[in-house]
């Protein structure tokens, strides 16, 4: 009985491992097709602009709210942890660096990943189950060129732009809290910002955002195209796209941080 259970467990794990490998293979093929159709896809520039509006402008208010409170919380937490150990004149510097290196790109990536990844997967998933993708192919229009390239390119372009916004708003949120409730003067906060601002920190955050944008667009499209069945399939695709985007953003954040700060910007 126990042996049977172990055997079934082993079979299940083997099946899941194969499924996972197949999934990685399908994503790799999609990325390959994305590069293949990049140039022709970009010729339909109107579609890219349309997606940039939908992805960027549509997510802006969400990013503003999240960033504002992220900066505010960062100020409160930093002030609490500094206590008697670190002078509060460094508050601006700590908020600045934590925001532009980590909090800005990652939180923007997760929030946009949730909204945009779900939206792309739901849209393409619905197109798949209602035969709209087949209709495109029947009209000799390649779905990767017409649907995937504009969405992934728009995500890659818009995410760094949104991160710049998010950084500015988070630093402003921290400023408001620092000045109004922690007792740091505006002058001290701004001096801290200026003293510890390094361009490489900003670049590292933007580089992360570039990759996060690619992950969000690609995962949304991949799970949208993989949708099977009806409404249930669309729901499942949406959930999977969001989960995969978030997990991959966090994993790639670590990998990029390791590469950037241990090797590239180490000196």
């Amino acid at each position: 009985m126990q042996e049977d259970l172990a055997l079934r467990g082993a079979r299940y794990l083997r099946r899941r491992a194969f499924d996972w490998i197949a999934e990685v293979g399908r994503v790799t093929l999609l990325i390959g097709e994305l590069f293949r159709f990049l140039a022709p896809g970009l010729r339909s520039f109107g579609l890219v602009i349309q997606q940039m509006g939908s992805i960027g402008v549509g997510s802006l208010w969400l990013v503003v709210v999240v960033s504002l409170f992220t900066g505010a919380v960062a100020a409160v937490q930093a002030a609490y942890q500094f206590s008697t150990v670190v002078p509060l004149k460094f508050l601006g510097a700590v908020i600045l660096r934590s925001v532009i290196i980590e909090l800005g790109p990652v939180l923007t990536g997760l929030v946009v990943g949730g909204r945009v990844g779900a939206s792309i997967a739901a849209e393409l998933g619905t197109m798949k189950v209602t035969e709209q993708i087949d209709a495109l192919r029947a009209m000799a229009i390649h779905p990767v060129r017409y649907l995937v390239v504009p969405r992934v390119v728009a995500s890659i372009v818009m995410l760094p732009i949104m991160v710049v916004f998010a950084n500015a708003i988070a630093i402003f949120g921290g400023f408001v809290v620092a000045v109004t409730s922690i007792g740091v003067s505006a002058h001290t906060y701004v001096i801290g910002l200026k003293q510890f601002f390094y361009l490489k920190d900003l670049y590292s955050g933007l580089l992360k955002a570039f990759f996060f944008g690619g992950i969000i667009g690609t995962m949304g499209c991949h799970y949208g195209f993989a949708t099977e069945g009806g409404a249930e399939g669309v729901g499942l695709a949406t959930t999977r796209a969001v989960v995969a985007s978030c997990v991959l953003i966090l994993i790639s954040d670590y990998v990029l941080a390791h590469m950037l700060f241990r090797f590239i910007f180490a000196s």
Binding site: E123, T126, Q132, D134, A135, R137, M139, A140, I141
Partner: peptide, 28 residues
């Protein structure tokens, strides 16, 4: 190239929801 010689009407029409009727008909 072969498909350009074909037209196809799908069971549920498979019109592109995000496009207008004119854009659907004129897409190809």
């Amino acid at each position: 190239e072969v498909r350009k010689r074909f037209g196809m009407l799908f069971q549920g029409a498979a019109l592109f929801d995000s496009l207008t009727v004119g854009e659907n008909v004129g897409l190809a």
